[in-house]
Amino acid sequence: MIDLFYISTNSMWSGSEELWSRSAKTFIDAGYSVCVATVYDHEKLDELKVKRLNFLNRFVPKPFLKRGIERFLPIKFETKDSLKDLLLEAKPQLVIISQGNIYESIDVINLCKYLNFPYITLTQLVSDLFIWVGKNEHVFTFREVYRNAKKNFFVSHSNLKLNNFILGCDLLNAEVVYNPCKLLNDELPAFSKISGFYTIGLVGRIECWHKGYDLLVQVLSEDKWKKRPIQFNMYGDGPHTEFIKTYISKWELKNLVLKGHSNHIGEVWSENQILLMPSRFEGQALALIEAMWCQRAAIVTDVGGASELIEEGVSGFIADAPTIASIDAALERAWEKRDEWQQMGIKAAASLREKHPADAVEYFNQQLLKLL
């Protein structure tokens, strides 16, 4: 019998995988028997195998549009029987289903319900876009599987509230947990000061429909942003890198610099004075948590849990909506207070430490232990 069976239905390794994978590693290190199943391969999973992982089975979803509306639809598993066999062999005390959105794991959740294995859900993202993905006949199924869970965990109060709205009911078995910060033991990066010059960092997958970078390039095309002594440093890679490059060239956005992917978050924030996240939707972004931990204020859109961490004019600036006008207005407010960014960053770090548990993984694990 396996103690904990972790299943991730996310399509790739990303920040949303940090919480469940660190949770699994901690339990493995503590001597618990753990099994993991994912739809992707990644070196982080190899680290789990080294750490006494009992066995690993990966299941693969049927092909669908990787970057479009179908990403939100429930996954139909080609190897569902293999996953069923693996669960029956493992006989887990608790199944932890980590999902990128509230719909993608329905097949897996239903399988656990059918096999009568206790399960919890961990949802990293809820967006009002999801309201229009489900069909009438799905509503009762969604309600049933979430109500049947031992617990449903969400990474922000905003996401939990929106989920209840989408389902048309209040889940009494739902709680908020927190995404981890990878920098707990790292030295805080010094605040970069270049007289009369300002740097803004953007950290995340270069994926416009999610991160809103298409909105940003339109904002930066205005002459006022081209003329100001400011540089926007974009870290990461993704399917829309060439799109961004096109408009850097076409609109001569010389102050927007693609830095590529970086695994050294401390170095990123040693080069930048404030974070910018023009996202269309978020759960609770690790990039925001890490920036605040490093004493950096943030300019964010009012999506997901951003406004739960950022206070307008105190620890950052909040765009009312992911629109060109709102992002431009928030950037303008930030520019007017550019000489206060360092002090605002200190306040951001203090606020994060007050609102966020010192060890988010330990907090999550304690909730799981209550269910074993």
Results as ranks from 00 to 15, higher is better:
residue 259 K to R: 13
residue 244 I to S: 03
residue 242 E to P: 03
residue 227 K to V: 12
residue 216 L to T: 06
residue 258 L to A: 05
residue 261 H to S: 13
residue 239 P to D: 11
residue 254 K to A: 15
residue 228 R to D: 04
residue 232 F to Q: 03
residue 268 V to W: 02
residue 218 Q to T: 07
residue 218 Q to R: 09
residue 249 S to L: 13
residue 223 D to Y: 08
residue 244 I to V: 14
residue 242 E to T: 15
residue 266 G to K: 11
residue 261 H to A: 14
residue 247 Y to Q: 10
residue 227 K to A: 14
residue 219 V to G: 04
residue 235 Y to I: 08
residue 226 K to H: 08
residue 243 F to P: 00
residue 234 M to F: 10
residue 255 N to R: 05
residue 259 K to T: 10
residue 262 S to F: 11
residue 220 L to F: 02
residue 236 G to N: 07
residue 246 T to K: 07
residue 256 L to I: 12
residue 250 K to A: 14
residue 248 I to R: 03
residue 236 G to Q: 06
residue 224 K to T: 10
residue 215 L to G: 01
residue 257 V to M: 07
residue 245 K to V: 07
residue 244 I to T: 02
residue 240 H to Q: 14
residue 260 G to V: 07
residue 242 E to Y: 14
residue 251 W to G: 04
residue 227 K to N: 15
residue 213 Y to P: 00
residue 261 H to L: 10
residue 242 E to A: 15
residue 240 H to T: 08
residue 259 K to V: 08
residue 246 T to C: 10
residue 220 L to I: 11
residue 218 Q to H: 09
residue 239 P to N: 09
residue 267 E to Q: 14
residue 234 M to L: 14
residue 258 L to P: 01
residue 223 D to V: 05
residue 253 L to R: 04
residue 213 Y to W: 00
residue 218 Q to F: 08
residue 229 P to H: 12
residue 227 K to C: 10
residue 241 T to W: 02
residue 237 D to C: 06
residue 214 D to I: 06
residue 237 D to N: 15
residue 262 S to A: 11
residue 242 E to I: 14
residue 256 L to D: 00
residue 265 I to H: 03
residue 243 F to K: 07
residue 259 K to F: 02
residue 220 L to G: 00
